[in-house]
Design a protein around this nucleic acid. Structure first.
Length: 638
DNA sequence: GCCCTCTTGTTCGAT
DNA sequence: ACAAGAGGGC
């Protein structure tokens, strides 16, 4: 297949320019994923071994799609069986740490601590330091520590210039304790998966050379959302071959609150000498109206590099703006709009409902359920975040990594086996135990031993079944309907692992844990299922739908109250831009005059972003309601 | 000392 | 949906 077939001139240059640094400024819907896939295929065709090629994507889902595209272009990659590494920065970090982590005292069996694990650990440390949780909020501590780690501020630098408050000093103390605990328990939090590889590469020349030599061609997608550690990793890895291609769009930078810095794009030409810059300004996704509406809004931002996005697509329908009384009427309108779209031939899977905050999903879900409209909630509490699911994984993690105190504490007394607060404390502190206490602890360690012994004799689904039964969950969860549901969730995990039925657990256990723990919300988007998708504007990044309904366009909600400062409002505007540019054919924006927020009724003004769309592109619809109660009301807005 | 049940608060976005 | 804390039962 011709690698260059169907590419426009700019895309073609991006694919051809394989040597040296390359910056691709890719507007929304300009086919950047396509460019990366074709570029990789081209590099392989030129004779480079696939395993010398690295592609960093924003989500695992994007990585999967990239793999498929490359496969479609090349057929079987090259016969040698070697494949490019395509994955997220976190997956790349894990690969580096599993290979060379021992150089910084990290076991190759290290565990990954998610946000919940991390918070629990920080809480424990704070309790140990007798910090009053009313004055020192563990959540805030976790946030600040994560930010410090993101910025790669070393522990030693804290307080170097003295502390300006006792609060700062406490944070420094907890930070030190937290890092020590993570290390002792052979755990890496999400930040560690990025910063520890950077440290490893910086401090160990041979390790650095190994990876620099290995990755001959590097691709980084969504470069506007890279943080300090990701930026440094990009520089370190590309320092030998200099073949680094980054793709991004400043107008779609929406993760600065997570430490991302879109200035990395502006600085690219300075940081990577001799860089070629290509602009992809042809949009293949949206109608002229949708693109023009989005462009008009984003033009208000001062922090940007203007890009002349254009499209040859049809003019399309006007942007529909609907003003509703409250969130229940808004939800009813969403239902009516879906019915309307289905009537004219759209499928449920063509439609997405976007919102600024997860809390907004509930009212919409209720309305969808009532009308039996199939839907998928993408954000919110996910399957893998469920307590009972994480408990099973904790058994697995503790058996895999004996140092993993985080996971051990999670399930030491789950299901309850008589190990309460007092005994837990004695056990952790190493205080000698009575015979009956000793027996309880031994019961737990025996379960763990039996799990480890099965690693090399049992496959993963059977191992998970064993954990559920041996730990005592079957009895524990047999009492009521809720328990039975939780047990069913646990067994669902067996089905997830079932694709690996033919290998012993030991061979895939780390990959399985990694897959589950780095699962992103977006990875759960599955448009092959015919269902309407409900997701946050953040989670919608990189996706597209024929029909997009953005809800809650009110001051205080979108833009959010907590993002009203200078600079942050521009990020809210970028988020709105991302939301609008997800739409291919039809965009509907809804807002309410009154809404329950944080437990009280709020009367919000329409979002400023609504007013930033040129009038000639919109239809404003204010439905007239029959004076009946909500329940009796029939939907006939048109 | 431990377990269970009930209440209350929660909240911007998420690898 | 979950955590944290209170309070009663064993």
């Amino acid at each position: 297949m011709d690698i260059f077939h169907g590419l426009n001139p700019e895309q073609k240059i991006a694919v051809e320019t394989t040597e040296g640094p390359l910056l691709v400024l890719a507007g929304a819907g300009s086919g950047k994923t396509r460019v990366i896939a074709h570029r990789i295929a081209h590099i392989v065709r030129q004779g480079t071994a696939p395993d010398r090629i690295l592609a960093v994507t924003f989500t695992n889902k994007a990585a999967g799609e990239m793999r498929e595209r490359i496969h479609a272009l090349l057929g079987t990659v090259d016969g040698s069986g070697s494949v490019p590494f395509i994955g997220t920065f976190h997956a790349l970090g894990i690969q580096i740490l599993r290979t060379h982590g021992s150089r910084i005292g990290l076991s190759d069996r290290f565990s990954i601590a998610d946000q919940e694990d991390s918070l629990k650990l920080i809480k424990e440390i704070m309790v140990g330091r007798q910090l009053d949780p009313d004055i020192y909020d563990p959540q805030r501590f976790r946030g600040i520590i994560s930010q410090l780690k993101n910025e790669m501020t070393p522990v030693s630098q804290l307080g170097a210039a003295g502390f300006s408050s006792p609060y700062e000093e406490q944070i420094a103390g907890v930070y030190v304790g937290y890092e020590a605990a993570l290390h002792k328990m052979q755990n890496c939090d999400f930040d560690d998966l990025l910063i520890r590889p950077v440290q490893l590469l910086k401090d160990h020349a041979d390790v650095r050379e190994y990876w620099q030599d290995k990755w001959k061609y590097i691709h980084i997608d969504e470069y506007q959302d890279t943080n300090v550690a990701q930026y440094q990793l990009s520089r370190l890895l590309s320092a030998r071959h200099h073949n680094i291609c980054v793709v991004g769009d400043i107008d779609q930078a929406i993760y600065s609150w997570r430490g991302a810095d879109w200035r990395n794009i502006l600085n690219f030409e300075r940081d990577f000498e001799g860089a070629t810059v290509i602009m992809l300004e042809q949009n293949y996704r949206s109608t002229k109206v949708i693109l023009e509406a989005a462009r008009s809004v984003i033009a208000r931002n001062s922090e940007r590099k203007p890009i002349a996005l254009r499209t040859d697509n049809a003019e399309g329908e006007k942007v529909r703006i609907k003003i509703l009384e409250d969130e229940r009427k808004e939800a009813a309108m969403v239902v009516s709009d879906i019915a309307d779209a289905i009537r004219v031939g759209y499928k449920h899977s063509d439609i997405a409902i976007l919102f600024r905050t997860n809390a907004q999903s509930r009212a919409i879900e209720e309305a969808l359920m009532k009308r039996a409209i199939p839907y998928r909630l993408v954000s919110g509490v996910r399957f893998y975040d469920r307590k009972e699911v994480k408990d099973v994984l904790a058994y697995l993690k503790r058996a895999r990594n004996p140092e993993d105190g985080v996971s051990e504490r999670r399930v030491l007394n789950m299901p309850p086996r008589g190990i309460g607060k007092v005994l837990l404390y004695k056990y952790i502190a190493g205080i000698s135990l009575s015979a009956s206490e000793q027996k309880k602890i031994e019961e737990f360690t025996r379960i763990i031993t039996e799990i480890s012994e099965k690693f090399s004799t049992t496959n993963l689904p059977d191992l998970i079944t064993f954990i559920i039964e041996r730990a005592g969950y079957v009895t524990y969860f047999s009492k009521d309907a809720e328990g039975k549901e939780r047990l069913a969730n646990m067994r669902e995990l067996v089905s997830v692992a079932a694709k690996h039925r033919d290998t012993h657990a030991i061979e895939i256990i780390d990959d399985f844990l990694q897959e589950v723990e780095l699962m992103s919300d977006q990875d759960l988007v599955d448009t092959t299922v015919d269902a309407v998708h409900l997701l946050t504007a953040h989670a919608a990044k990189g996706l597209e739908f024929k029909v997009v309904i953005v809800t809650g366009l009110e001051e205080g909600l979108f833009p959010h109250t907590l993002a009203q400062e200078e600079g942050m409002i521009e990020e809210e505007r970028r988020l709105f831009y991302v939301a609008v540019t997800r739409a291919r054919e039809r965009i509907i924006l809804t807002l309410t005059m009154r809404r329950m927020m944080n437990g009280e009724v709020a009367f919000n003004d329409p979002s400023r972003f609504i007013g930033e769309i040129p009038e000639h592109l919109v239809d404003i619809i204010i439905p007239e309601y029959p004076s009946k109660s909500y329940e009796e009301e029939t939907i006939h807005y048109f």
